[in-house]
Amino acid sequence: MSISQPSQTMEHQPFFDVIQERRSVRSYNPEVKISREELVEILRQATLAPSAANLQPWRFLVIDTPELKQKLLPIAFNQQQVVEASAVVAVLGDLENIRMAEKIYGQAVEAGFMPADTAKSMVEHYTGMYSSMPPEAIRQIAYTDGGLVSMQLMLVARAKGYDTVPIGGYDKQKFMETFRISERYTSIMLIAIGKAAKPGHPTVRLAVDDVAFFNEMSKE
């Protein structure tokens, strides 16, 4: 049995270096271009993130042409990283992602991860469950899973020597209209990716004692 080797394009950095060196970078070198091949590899690694029932509701619109980045600029309230970065990845949530259940579980059968009858049962179960869920619950799942894949994308980019910044400050409705994205999708965030022209500034974090509680919450 052959064992697949890691992609030769991936950098090998200690994990804790990656998470400690990641910064939200807002100033990019506009001369640096990331190839489509490498962007695809970053997205492929990002999509190894977990998702509810493995339904993977994330979708990506990669914006990397100067013309479209200029079109995005006013929608993102003129944040210059939108045009300076090599690309902007719009992370979307597919509110009808249950449509992919048969394909996903079919691939699991082909890979030998589960028997066909189990896959059929799971498709039927989740299709029935999603059909009875309120739209807001499905939207919440898309946001949760979209957050997971977004963080993974930023860490993968850092491991490959690139910088990112998540952008929540933009006109989502205008974005959807301008880029002709149907109501099947919800816009979760934008992520600028490229090479920093100026390093992201260091930040502080609350102590674990301030944010974590064991077995019961503080009454304060």
Rank of each mutant, 00 (worst) to 15 (best):
A116T: 00
M217F: 10
V204S: 14
S121R: 06
Q79W: 07
R44S: 12
D145F: 04
L153A: 01
R22N: 02
I167Q: 01
M176W: 13
L73W: 04
Y130K: 06
E84M: 08
V18D: 02
I181S: 03
A52I: 06
E220Y: 14
A212W: 11
A116K: 08
S218L: 11
N29C: 14
S182G: 07
A85E: 01
S2D: 09
N54A: 11
P30K: 04
S121N: 09
E136V: 04
T178A: 15
A46S: 09
P57N: 00
R22W: 14
Q152R: 13
E41D: 10
G93L: 09
L39R: 05
S131C: 06
A142W: 08
P14A: 07
H12C: 14
Q107F: 11
I75F: 03
V208C: 11
S187V: 08
V149A: 04
K198R: 10
A76Y: 00
A192R: 01
L48F: 15
G194V: 03
V91I: 06
S27D: 11
G93A: 05
P30M: 03
F213R: 10
S35L: 11
R36Q: 12
R59Y: 12
A159R: 07
S132I: 15
G161N: 07
A116M: 03
G194F: 04
D94P: 01
V109Q: 03
K120H: 15
Y28T: 02
N29R: 14
I19E: 02
V18E: 04
S187N: 06
M129W: 15
A212N: 04
P74L: 13
S187Y: 10
K195S: 09
I167A: 04
E136H: 05
